[in-house]
C-alpha cells in the first residue's frame, strides 16, 4: 500500500493541478497578508475559505484522479498486489498531496510573516489541521462515489452534489427544521445534526475559536457543556476522525466487490 501511496503521491505532486492549487492558496494568503498584516484577521478569513474550498477541491480532485488513473489501476490490478492496497494507496496519495498543497500554500506565507511566536499560532495550526482533515474526508467521499459510478459525467455530477449537500443544502434543511420545531427542545437535535456533517463539524471547531462569546449566550445546558468545556473539542475531533475512517472503509468494501 505504501508503495502505491508513494507513486500516486509523487505522480500528483508533479501534476500541474497540484501546483495550481498550491499556487492559488499561496497567492490568496499572501494577498490577504499584504492587505492586512493583522495575522488574526487573515486566519479568520482563511477559516471561512477552508470550509468552502478544501471540500470542493478535494471532491473534484478525488473524482478526477480516480477516473484519470482508471487504466493505471487496471495495470496495478494485474500485479501481485492486494486489491485494497491499490485503492487505499491511491486515495491516501490524493489526500496527502492535497493536504501538502494546502499546508504549503497557506503555511509558507504565514511562516514568512512569522506566525509562530505570535498569539495566532494555535488558531493557525487549527486552521491547517481542519484543511487537512477536510481534504481527507472529501477525497474519500469522492473516491467512493467514483468507484460506485463507471460513468464519469454521473460520477462528477454526484460528487458535486455531495459537496453541495454538505456545504449548503444540509444547513438549509437543518435551519428549516430548527425553525419549524422551535416549539420543542431541539438543543440536542441541532447539536447532533451539526456533528453529523463534517463541514459543520469543522465549522464548530472554528466557532469555538472565533465566536465563543456568542456561543456562550446559549441558555441550553447541553450546548454550554459541549461548547464551553474541552468536551466540544474532543468530540468534534473524534467525530472528524470517524468521518475519515468511514468513507475509507466504504472504499475498501466497494473495491473488494468491484469488477474491472
Amino acid at each position: 500500500m505504501f508503495k502505491i501511496l508513494k507513486y500516486s503521491f509523487f505522480d500528483l505532486i508533479r501534476s500541474r493541478w497540484t501546483y495550481i492549487y498550491c499556487g492559488f492558496y499561496m497567492l490568496f494568503t499572501f494577498s490577504l497578508l499584504w492587505l492586512s498584516s493583522d495575522l488574526s484577521k487573515v486566519v479568520i478569513s482563511l477559516m471561512n475559505v477552508v470550509l468552502l474550498l478544501c471540500p470542493l477541491i478535494a471532491t473534484m480532485f478525488g473524482v478526477m484522479y480516480y477516473y484519470n488513473s482508471r487504466e493505471f489501476t487496471e495495470l496495478l490490478l494485474a500485479q501481485p498486489v492486494k486489491r485494497t492496497s491499490i485503492f487505499l494507496g491511491q486515495y491516501l496519495g490524493v489526500a496527502a498531496s492535497l493536504s501538502a498543497s494546502w499546508v504549503i500554500g497557506v503555511g509558507f506565507p504565514f511562516l514568512i510573516y512569522g506566525v509562530f511566536g505570535s498569539a495566532q499560532a494555535g488558531n493557525f495550526l487549527m486552521l491547517l489541521l481542519i484543511g487537512v482533515v477536510l481534504s481527507f474526508v472529501f477525497s474519500a467521499i469522492a473516491f467512493f462515489i467514483a468507484l460506485k459510478n463507471e460513468n464519469r459525467i454521473k460520477g462528477f455530477g454526484l460528487a458535486i452534489l455531495a459537496w453541495l449537500f454538505f456545504a449548503v443544502i444540509y444547513d438549509g434543511i437543518l435551519l428549516l427544521s430548527l425553525s419549524l420545531l422551535s416549539e420543542y427542545p431541539v438543543e440536542k437535535f441541532s447539536l447532533i445534526a451539526s456533528v453529523l456533517n463534517p463541514i459543520d463539524l469543522s465549522r464548530i471547531l472554528i466557532l469555538l475559536k472565533l465566536d465563543i462569546s456568542a456561543l456562550m449566550g446559549f441558555t441550553g445546558a447541553v450546548f454550554r457543556k459541549f461548547l464551553g468545556t474541552g468536551l466540544g473539542m474532543v468530540v468534534s475531533m473524534a467525530v472528524l476522525a470517524v468521518w475519515v475512517v468511514l468513507p475509507v472503509l466504504s472504499i475498501r468494501r466497494v473495491a473488494m466487490r468491484k469488477d474491472f
Binding site: 507513486y7 500516486s8 505522480d11 488513473s69 487504466e71 493505471f72 487496471e74
Partner: peptide, 10 residues
Amino acid sequence: PQIARFPENL
C-alpha cells in the same frame, strides 16, 4: 492489457 494508459506525470 488492451488499452494502455498510464499515470501521465510519470
